[in-house]
């Protein structure tokens, strides 16, 4: 009886997953069609007449200077994740373990920043960044550290609260400085991949394909959508366990 219901659920889930992931396959399929054959019949497989091979990819890569955007994306993504994890975990540990009015005020300030919509600081932030000459890849990483601080301090604090203090105290008794304690005891057990979704530059480049004057190249657009999804999917499939643990840790323990 139970195994029968479970098989039915299994089949339902398979169908749901196929439906759920079909948009990605539809884009993939269309990226191999000539640009004028896409909008009219997006759900038809490419045939001898509509198939253009990798022409769309070549076009798109040239049009938006894809590898340039990809390089930027990679640098900013990897750079900011490393910087954010490093600095905000230290901050979170400090404000969780040192209980003063200042640290609790800081905690609430970080939490507060999470609900402020980006549009509130969009204009002024770009002005400040301009004045301080932060409008370059390294500066952007610094900006991301500041803007991402709220969320990740919040998440790390939630996690740190669940670590027993005794482990850290033992290491202090052994004569370790707070810095040594943090990096030898606390840092190694933090879930690093809390902060995934920092993947921006390519999507903005894709936006340029939209082009004015209603003349957009649908083929190139499809190809670039595929190219911008592939790195994320590869990344996700390699570290999915940590990503999902990160989501859970952030939501439940925070």
């Amino acid at each position: 009886m139970k195994s029968k219901t479970n098989s039915i659920i299994f089949i339902v889930l398979v169908i749901l997953v196929i439906l759920f992931l079909s948009p990605i396959f539809i884009v993939l399929m269309n990226s191999f069609k000539g640009q004028f054959y896409i909008a009219d019949a997006p759900f038809v497989l490419p045939d001898a007449k509509t198939y253009v091979g990798i022409k769309n990819y070549i076009n798109g890569v040239a049009k938006i200077n894809f590898f340039h955007a990809f390089g930027y994306s990679l640098f900013i993504t990897v750079g900011s994740v490393l910087v954010i994890v490093f600095f905000t975990s230290m901050t979170a540990w400090y404000i969780t373990r040192v209980k003063t009015k200042i640290t609790s005020a800081l905690y609430y300030l970080f939490v507060f920043s999470m609900i402020v919509p980006f549009q509130m600081v969009m204009f002024t932030m770009s002005k400040v960044a301009n004045v301080l000459r932060l409008d370059n890849p390294v500066g952007i990483i610094f900006i991301y550290l500041g803007f991402g601080a709220g969320l990740s301090v919040f998440m790390f604090s939630g996690f740190i609260k669940s670590i027993p203090k005794e482990i850290e105290e033992a290491s202090v008794i052994d004569g370790c400085s707070p810095i040594q304690t943090f990096f030898s005891v606390v840092f190694p057990i933090l879930p690093y991949l809390l902060i995934g979704n920092k993947y921006r530059t390519i999507p903005i480049a894709v936006q340029f394909l939209q082009g004015g004057y209603g003349s957009r190249d649908m083929g190139a657009l499809m190809a670039m959508l595929v190219l911008s999804i592939v790195p994320i999917i590869v990344f996700y499939l390699t570290c999915q366990r940590q990503i999902i643990e990160g989501v859970v840790a952030g939501a439940v323990k925070g």
């Binding site: 300030l109 920043s113 402020v116 600081v121 002024t124 932030m125 400040v128 610094f142 803007f147 709220g150």
Partner: peptide, 11 residues
């Protein structure tokens, strides 16, 4: 510092 420059001051 980063938080002040990219969030608090603009806010």
């Amino acid at each position: 510092l980063a938080f002040t420059i990219s969030f608090l001051i603009p806010f």
